[in-house]
Amino acid sequence: MPCCPPITAGELSPTDAEKTAAVFKAPSDPVRLRLFSRIASHPGGEACVCDIFDVGVSRPTVSHHLKKLREAVLLTSGRRGTGVYYQVAPSVVAAMSAMLDLRG
């Protein structure tokens, strides 16, 4: 999320507020948060969709949620063979954390 300054840097512009809201909105869904957590905690820092799909919803719904996380740039993905592997985008997560760091 290199788009947005820390919240303590001053009032967000309307554009920065829109971009930031989109990034924070993506993991606010419980299914998305579970998928994100499974990927983040998976050995090696990446997970095949075949390893994480069992979160209580249909596979098409899992695909929808993974797409939302990718669109928010919280995840990256790549195809290997027949599997799609997902990784957390560490720079985005670090930027989200830095933005909310109220210590200034």
Results as ranks from 00 to 15, higher is better:
54 D>P: 13
15 T>W: 11
68 K>V: 06
102 L>P: 15
17 A>N: 11
77 S>D: 07
17 A>Y: 06
22 A>K: 02
66 L>S: 00
16 D>Q: 08
3 C>Y: 12
99 M>G: 14
94 A>N: 05
47 A>Q: 00
84 V>H: 07
60 P>T: 02
6 P>Y: 01
10 G>C: 03
81 G>D: 13
66 L>R: 03
55 V>K: 05
54 D>R: 04
31 V>G: 08
50 C>V: 12
17 A>D: 14
93 V>K: 04
104 G>R: 12
34 R>A: 14
37 S>W: 01
73 V>L: 03
67 K>Y: 10
100 L>P: 03
62 V>C: 09
61 T>P: 04
13 S>T: 15
78 G>N: 08
20 T>H: 00
58 S>T: 13
45 G>V: 04
39 I>P: 01
62 V>T: 03
2 P>V: 04
81 G>R: 12
55 V>L: 05
64 H>C: 13
10 G>D: 08
97 S>T: 15
6 P>I: 03
26 A>T: 04
60 P>S: 03
59 R>M: 15
55 V>R: 03
11 E>D: 10
83 G>A: 10
46 E>L: 06
8 T>M: 04
40 A>W: 02
63 S>P: 14
16 D>S: 09
52 I>S: 03
44 G>W: 13
59 R>G: 12
77 S>E: 15
93 V>Y: 00
89 A>Q: 09
60 P>I: 00
24 F>N: 09
87 Q>G: 12
44 G>S: 05
32 R>P: 06
48 C>G: 13
12 L>H: 08
75 L>W: 11
78 G>K: 13
101 D>F: 01
35 L>C: 07
66 L>P: 07
4 C>E: 04
2 P>N: 15
98 A>G: 09
65 H>E: 11
25 K>F: 01
28 S>V: 01
83 G>K: 12
75 L>E: 00
26 A>C: 01
66 L>G: 00
12 L>G: 10
8 T>V: 11
47 A>Y: 01
92 V>I: 08
102 L>C: 07
50 C>A: 14
23 V>A: 10
85 Y>H: 06
78 G>T: 14
36 F>Y: 06
45 G>S: 03
15 T>Q: 12
104 G>A: 10
43 P>K: 06
92 V>A: 01
9 A>G: 11
23 V>K: 03
19 K>V: 05
61 T>S: 08
61 T>F: 00
48 C>I: 09
74 L>C: 04
78 G>S: 14
55 V>N: 06
66 L>W: 07
45 G>I: 03
82 T>Q: 11
5 P>K: 15
39 I>A: 02
31 V>W: 13
47 A>V: 01
52 I>Q: 01
